[in-house]
């Protein structure tokens, strides 16, 4: 896991992320090249994050598109210095919450409903067919959305506890607690399968 950036090191945050701010500010003034640069930086991480949640390329693509449209629409109102990355994933978090609220389905249940078999891992799932992957996948599926999000934000995107708290709009202690619950449940699942 690559622990980043924003919380743990203000120095790094000061040297790396302001470039994102400059780009979004330039885009707000009409420089579409700045947007292209931002998009190139974050398209794959964001898509991967959404795909992990949905497990479905089409649905992930739809959410991905919505998030970027929100970025475009809100670019002139962006004022959080050095926090574009957090802001982007906050938009993604909100979009995911809306999505699951609308569909009234817990994350991870899509594949189960489509296949009708809880023990089967679909072909487009993100994990290999090994036991560890199955066990992890099953455990992730059972996690509440917030814990699952916190886990992916940390493992996939390298966000710190404070970043996750900011993205999820909660206290850092609560974010840490979510992470601990998620990791513990995944560990239990792996141990249960003696992995």
């Amino acid at each position: 896991m690559a622990l980043a950036v924003t919380d743990s090191s203000d120095v790094l945050a000061g040297t790396v992320e302001p470039a994102d701010d400059q780009l979004i500010a330039a885009y707000a003034r009409g420089d579409h090249g700045a947007f292209d640069e931002l998009y190139t930086r974050y398209r794959q991480p964001l898509y991967g994050y959404l795909f992990r949640h949905c497990g479905d390329a089409e649905q992930a693509g739809e959410l991905f598109q919505d998030v970027w449209l929100r970025v475009i629409a809100s670019s002139r109102r962006f004022e959080r210095q050095g926090r574009f990355r957090s802001w982007l994933f906050t938009l993604a978090h909100n979009r995911l919450v809306d999505h699951y609220r609308q569909t009234e389905r817990r994350p991870g249940t899509v594949a189960e409903q489509e296949t009708g078999d809880d023990d089967t891992v679909p072909a487009d799932r993100t994990y290999d067919s090994g036991q560890a992957a199955d066990a992890l996948q099953a455990a992730l599926t059972c996690l509440p959305l917030e814990q699952r999000q916190a886990f992916f934000l940390r493992e996939e995107q390298g966000f710190s506890i404070r970043d996750i708290a900011e993205i999820q709009g909660i206290d850092p202690e609560a974010a840490k607690s979510r992470l601990r619950y998620a990791y513990s449940k995944l560990r239990d699942a792996l141990q249960e399968h003696q992995l």
């Binding site: 794959q44 898509y47 991967g48 795909f51 970027w68 993100t126 994990y127 992890l136």
Partner: peptide
């Protein structure tokens, strides 16, 4: 065990760029 997620579909890239 985590696999790389698939790449972003090109039609979404085009759409987002167009709107932007």
């Amino acid at each position: 065990v985590a696999e790389e997620p698939p790449p972003v579909p090109h039609h979404i890239d085009r759409l987002v760029h167009g709107v932007a």
